[in-house]
């Protein structure tokens, strides 16, 4: 339960919280514009921008041609003028045509112009699987962005955090990739796909305060305190790992990283020094994944506190499958056995 629970607000899904964050920022800052495929009149294929064009006008919230290269490229130009564009890429799987504008341009603009020009944009994009979307609606490409110098990468896991993080991202003067786990849009997901879906309204972190609030980028959150093992996770896997710890009765400390770059290294060190055991979990493919970076950091900084090798639990190194989605997904068995190995070591 977060302290914000006391503030006036209401229960929201993650989609509603993202919509609310955009609404707040459009109202507060005339420099904010929202653009992307189908985001205008229709309000986005996931409804994240529903109602925003009608409220804020067609030159603040508008549809774009189907060109991710163009969407990111014009956002760089808008940023150069002084706007704060919030482009939406309809699925993270479709961000690749925009990669040159992101990696070569947005990420390095401040550096190459010695601060004369910046790219204060927040690229929102639904990511991750668990919805039978096949290989082109399920990917988690965060490591492609964390590898690039000059881009911040944010992944929320609750409605409360989604709103506060998105506001902080929009107010940030550097380019931010904001990956929204689409499996969490309408409810938390604990990894048990064969059990009935749970709505956000029954989850404490669906309480979303009214108006403006920020969750500073680079701050992790302890979702569940524990002494036996530290779990480093983000997005959907926060909920899955936590559920496994609870069902297996493991005294795990689950940390929701929330921001991958810049990382809350102090929170990680504090926890791992306490527990001496660490598991990193992500849905993305394993090789070269962000888990590798986390594991390296933990052993560099906490080596003498470690009582077991760091466990990496991830998706497999294959494209995201369709019919075998749940064989691919790093679910309760994969996580549970990693817990067992850590505790036994």
């Amino acid at each position: 339960m977060t302290g914000a629970d006391a503030a006036p607000g209401r229960r929201m899904t993650m989609i509603e919280a993202i919509n609310d964050a955009l609404d707040v920022m459009l109202a507060r800052d005339p420099m904010v514009v929202v653009l992307g495929e189908d985001v205008g009149y229709f309000g986005g294929v996931f409804r994240a921008t529903a109602g925003l064009q009608a409220k804020h006008g067609r030159t603040r919230v508008f549809d774009t041609p189907i060109s991710e290269c163009g969407i990111i490229g014009v956002a760089v130009g808008m940023g150069a003028y002084g706007l704060r564009p919030v482009p939406e890429i309809q699925f993270a799987d479709y961000i690749y045509p925009g990669l040159d504008q992101l990696v070569s341009e947005a990420a390095r603009l401040r550096y190459r112009s010695a601060g004369e020009f910046t790219a204060p944009m927040t690229v929102r994009s639904p990511f991750g699987g668990g919805i039978f979307g096949g290989q082109t609606h399920s990917q988690s490409p965060e490591a492609l962005f964390t590898h690039v110098a000059g881009i911040k990468t944010v992944v929320p896991s609750t409605p409360h955090d989604a709103k506060g993080l998105l506001i902080a991202a929009i107010e940030d003067n550097d380019p931010v990739i904001f990956f929204e786990p689409k499996r969490l849009y309408n409810g938390p997901f604990n990894g048990h796909y064969d059990e009935p879906a749970v709505p956000w309204s029954r989850h404490p972190d669906s309480h979303v305060p009214e108006g403006h609030y920020r969750i500073d980028l680079g701050t992790a959150r302890v979702v569940r305190a524990g002494e036996a093992v530290t779990v480093l996770a983000y997005g959907t896997m926060v909920h899955v790992a936590r559920e496994v710890a609870e069902r297996q009765g493991i005294d795990a400390e689950v940390i929701d990283l929330r921001t991958l770059v810049p990382l809350d290294i102090a929170a990680i060190e504090r926890s791992v020094r306490k527990t001496g055991r660490c598991m990193v979990v992500h849905e993305a493919t394993r090789t070269g994944g962000f888990g590798a970076e986390l594991a390296a950091l933990v052993q560099e900084r906490c080596f003498y506190a470690l009582e077991a090798p760091v466990e990496r639990v991830t998706g497999f190194d294959t494209p995201y499958p369709h019919s075998l989605e749940w064989a691919y997904f790093p679910g309760p068995v994969r996580i549970g056995e990693a817990f067992d190995r850590l505790i036994a070591a």
């Binding site: 796909y193 497999f316 075998l324 749940w326 064989a327």
Partner: peptide
């Protein structure tokens, strides 16, 4: 039909990468 029956041999997940 599509479902949670996981119809394909699991090894096919790793073939053809």
């Amino acid at each position: 039909v599509l479902g949670h029956g996981l119809h394909h041999p699991f090894r096919t997940l790793f073939e053809d990468v």
